[in-house]
Design a protein around this nucleic acid. Structure first.
Length: 509
DNA sequence: TCCTTGGTCATTACACTTCG
DNA sequence: CGAAGTGTAATGACCAAGGA
């Protein structure tokens, strides 16, 4: 025993605590995420994980070994059952699902759904479909939500919409996500199909029901203005979706000491649900709420964990896309309360108006809502035009044109920002800044219709608007640093102008 | 060649849930 | 409430690779 122990790197949890311990939900989250990145981590990686989740290195190593073994066993089991699969229904037994789903759900919530998932002997198709409500495919749910159940197309050039386009596979390379949003032109017609914007979600929590990546994805579909969760359970796929307008509140929260964050959504109505079985590949049919205890129909708050920066970035893209391409009501709801100073919040109903929150901790005297409205002008203008009242800009039509001018006003109508572009008509630029917080990376999202990349501080003319009045470009350059193309940071000590604080985004034309 | 590290595989031990 | 069942942490045997 001692000899064995000396052979291995460190003590196990059991040896350390004299009691066998199971990994908790947070530890499993990290372990599973790391496993998706690499199933055989090297010693340095194991050490890092060990320190991160307060497990012994040996236990981390054992967890990976056991997980590899489980996955192998599951693969063998699936291969041996492949030929027996003839009912074409919900074969949702353990297999690879177990690797990521089962223990998490068993440890955390004991969802009946997940119990069924990992009870290989009881997951009869009938039981599963009954649980998921697929026996009700002829109910009005299906017909009522047909427009939503239609699979959004994946590209503007494709008219074939019968195949599944939601990413069932894991999104582990988050760095690629920033390139998934299409370049849009200001004149892109609304009817042109746009690719979805994916949110890198590691987990979805509704009440105490939880689903995990890689069997989970979340995307915004511009073509239907819909948010859609896609979940897989081996050969059966599940969808939960709702129109973006059903979002009462949406914001990204993050732990200042962590790269992970959470996309928090509050809905004002319950989502719709659909299922696709192997028997009818490509065909989605409506079903009842398949979450544990139908929590998804009753609990309005959704929490999606993922890398905070990318979640924030994608959310900004959604806002930008919607403000440009979604027609409809332009009423603006009350902004969500900012939970913490590092939160990024947004108003889901923003159409022609961009909500700007100013409750940044650095700015105490100007707490309140601000609006940025984009108004079409015939002439290039540097005018400063206050919005008369803080009421929603309900009738603003958002015409993206070369001579649009952006205004940022606070609720009292006080002018707080103006356009510095020297020649907007020539530049045709539209730069979007999200969550400008000194000391944090700020992505610069361009809409792609002239400005390919922001690579120079001098391109960040609109950053000057965030700094105290009359800041010069030289002063801006001294405070602001490009850390990569389309990403910059302000010195942590940089004071922001009263109107800026944390904001959703700004647009300049 | 020896030692260390780390992999697979089979198995055991234990915490927890289910069931009668 | 205790037995049985289940999932998983942990152990031990064995093997391979690499370095001294």
């Amino acid at each position: 025993m001692d000899k064995k122990r000396s052979k291995k790197s460190t003590l196990t949890q059991q040896q350390r605590n004299n009691k066998r311990q199971r990994a908790n939900a947070q530890q499993l989250d990290v372990l599973r995420h790391e496993y998706r990145l690499c199933a055989t981590p090297d010693a340095a990686t194991r050490r890092r994980i060990s320190a991160l989740i307060d497990m012994t290195e040996r236990s981390v190593q054992i967890w990976f070994q056991n997980t590899r073994a489980k996955q192998k066993k599951a693969m063998r089991g699936r291969e041996s059952r492949e030929d027996d699969f003839d009912d074409g229904l919900a074969d949702v037994s353990v297999d690879d699902v177990s690797v990521d789903d089962v223990s998490m759900t068993a440890d955390v919530i004991n969802s009946p759904v997940d119990v069924i998932h990992h009870r290989t002997d009881v997951s009869s198709s009938a039981d599963m479909l009954h649980h998921f409500g697929a026996d009700l495919v002829t109910t009005p749910i299906q017909t009522h939500f047909n427009h939503l159940l239609a699979t959004p197309p994946t590209s503007s050039s494709s008219s074939h919409v019968t195949t599944v386009d939601s990413p069932a596979s894991s999104i582990t390379d988050f760095s690629t996500l920033g390139h998934m949003t299409p370049n849009l032109t200001p004149t892109t017609p609304h009817h042109v199909t746009l690719p979805p914007i994916f949110f890198p979600t590691l987990s979805l929590t509704i009440g105490n029901w939880r689903r995990l990546s890689p069997q989970l994805s979340l995307a915004y579909y511009p073509s239907t203005d819909t948010m859609l969760y896609h979940m897989t359970s081996e050969k059966t796929q599940f969808r939960m979706q709702f129109p973006f307008s059903a979002i009462e509140e949406i914001h990204v929260s993050r732990n200042p000491n962590d790269t992970l964050g959470a996309l928090n959504l509050t809905l004002n109505c319950s989502p719709s649900f659909s299922i696709q079985t192997p028997k009818a590949p490509g065909r989605w049919v409506g079903c009842h709420d398949f979450s544990e205890g139908k929590q998804a129909s009753n609990v309005t708050t959704h929490v999606c964990n993922g890398p905070a920066t990318v979640l924030q970035q994608q959310l900004s893209r959604v806002f930008a896309l919607r403000s440009n391409h979604v027609n409809g009501h332009v009423s603006r709801r009350r902004l969500a309360d900012v939970i913490g100073s590092s939160d990024i919040i947004g108003s889901a109903d923003v159409m022609g108006t961009v909500a700007v929150d100013t409750s940044n901790h650095m700015i105490s005297s100007h707490v309140g809502d601000f609006e940025l409205s984009v108004t079409s002008h015939c002439e290039p203008s540097h005018m400063i035009e206050p919005t008369p009242t803080p009421t929603p800009v309900a009738n603003h039509h958002h015409h993206r044109s070369a001579d649009s001018v952006a205004h940022v006003t606070n609720p009292s109508g006080h002018v707080t920002n103006h356009n510095h572009l020297s020649d907007p008509a020539a530049n045709l630029t539209s730069t979007i800044l999200g969550n400008v917080t000194p000391g944090h990376t700020t992505p610069v999202l361009d809409d792609g219709f002239e400005l390919g990349h922001v690579t120079d501080i001098n391109d960040l003319v609109s950053v000057a608007q965030l700094l105290p009045n009359h800041v010069t470009e030289a002063e801006l350059a001294s405070n602001c640093h490009m850390i990569a193309n389309n990403a910059f940071t302000l010195d942590p000590s940089t004071p922001l102008s009263p109107f800026s604080g944390t904001l959703d985004y700004l647009e300049y034309y």
